[in-house]
Nucleic acid binder design. Structure first.
Lengths: 258, 258
DNA sequence: AGAGCTAGGTAACAACGTGTAACGCGATGC
DNA sequence: GCATCGCGTTACACGTTGTTACCTAGCTCT
């Protein structure tokens, strides 16, 4: 009788967003992703159209920050193509004010655009505005086309919600474990803070309201998942610890269709 | 270690599909709704545009099966209007092949159409196809619409997932109980068979594969929900038993916006 | 290098949630 | 009226999940 609802997909889950930062300048990417992550979102870097596409295949993306200048690729064109194929929210980023006119005239279909260099707060405001406006899939749980994830011999069928080991043995995961795995699979190589994971799983660490908050629930959960999917839980190969940060899924994940 | 996934709310809730069957012929409605329910969906009957609208107001609708001939109303026209207002997937049903041409020529915006009389399996295939194709817009509709259900003094906030008794006391429901309540609230006055409920909740009654199948899980669950929401569980006012059939939520449910 | 501190691993525990089995009762049918 | 069936209900067994406590690995500072 402790569970008082309000923990499926309240406004909390809303706040965890997966943003694809597309820029060919490494420094710029770094700066933007870091800033976005500090503000409670999951930011994924991409440098080219092909990277964008593989990210879109691989996991849920809530918003794309797309630079107009992408080396020899054309951001505007990419934007238009993406928009025709699926309706991911897109914010264009450009250094030239001339681009703005082109964007408005051209029907590239961006949700917003912002001039570089920009005030970080402004960026955040725009991002929030677009995300709020286009509040689509809120739950971090894939709602994408992706049906099957493959990593290092393992196979996770998101649709049937079944996971098989490299030897073909089905492994039983609890609900929490499954959700955790989904979060990890959606963010390979990206260190996730405990808090991020907690938000995604909608765990609030019970009495956690003030300072330190957030008990060891995540740690325990990670441990339990490790026991099930790691050959040697003591020396994890996939679900690695990022000391002082959180956890990373340190393996390439291939996302297939059904 | 018995639970082999494939039963998590995330995807399961997704799989509860609410289909609005619009036809002015009672027999036809009956036949279609019954068939759809037997196949794991929640089918709601409607005979006129006004009924369609009240259903759309009242709850999440994933798909509309709309007959072209609706007495003195024009199904095509209704389809076009609905499409302009919101993007609910619509499958048109017509008895006249001439209608097909009109549909194609006319931009009514239906997702598909099917000729009457039709093979039930074909109907199901079309329904599934459209639902799969428009998965995202379905969830969008869900979010946009109904947020709060009110019945007989009770108040259920679907978004926050909280339920309050007439005296304003919050009642804690377990996940299953919550899902059951959602199913019931979405189908007021409609007797639901155990099997339907089981499908919606994704309970398969464990070893239930052969003959009788489906244990008493639903009964027990109903009992537990009654204890929490009925004043006198022995003499239920909302969650009534339909002997030999299943259960009904025998109270008017008002669906409000947030 | 060693003391001390901190973060993370993990075992044990407790509180639930939830399906199953069993018993009993009231309704239905002959 | 008796047998049967459907349903309500309780007791129980098990899995899940958060919490606590204790321990160890790693880092820091001197």
């Amino acid at each position: 009788m402790k569970k008082f609802g309000a923990e499926h997909e309240g406004d909390k889950t809303m706040s965890i967003r997966r943003i694809l930062v597309v820029d060919d300048d490494p420094d710029m990417r770094q700066m933007m992703t870091q800033f976005l992550r500090q503000n409670g979102t999951i930011a994924l870097p991409a440098a080219s159209e092909s990277e964008v596409r593989s990210q879109l295949e691989g996991g849920r993306i809530d918003l794309i920050l797309l630079d107009v200048m992408l080396g020899d690729e054309n951001g505007l064109e990419i934007c238009r193509k993406l928009r025709q194929e699926q309706d991911v929210p897109i914010i264009m980023v450009s250094a030239l004010s001339a681009d703005h006119q082109r964007m408005e005239g051209y029907s590239v279909g961006a949700d917003d655009y912002i001039a570089k260099p920009f005030n970080p707060e402004l960026l955040l405001a725009r991002v929030k505005a677009v995300l709020t406006r286009t509040r689509r899939s809120a739950s971090l749980v894939h709602r994408r086309n992706t049906k099957i994830f493959v990593f290092s011999g393992w196979r996770y069928d998101a649709k049937a919600d079944q996971i098989f080991s490299p030897t073909g043995v089905q492994v039983a995961l609890s609900r929490r474990e499954t959700t955790l795995l989904q979060v990890l699979l959606a963010n390979p190589h990206i260190p996730l803070k405990r808090e991020e994971i907690a938000v995604a799983l909608d765990v609030t660490g019970e009495t956690s309201q003030s300072s330190d908050a957030l008990g060891r629930a995540i740690d325990v959960l990670v441990g339990r998942l490790r026991i099930k999917i790691e050959v040697n839980p003591k020396d994890p190969q996939f679900l690695k610890t990022e000391r002082g940060v959180g956890y990373v899924f340190a393996v390439d994940v291939e996302a297939k269709e059904a």
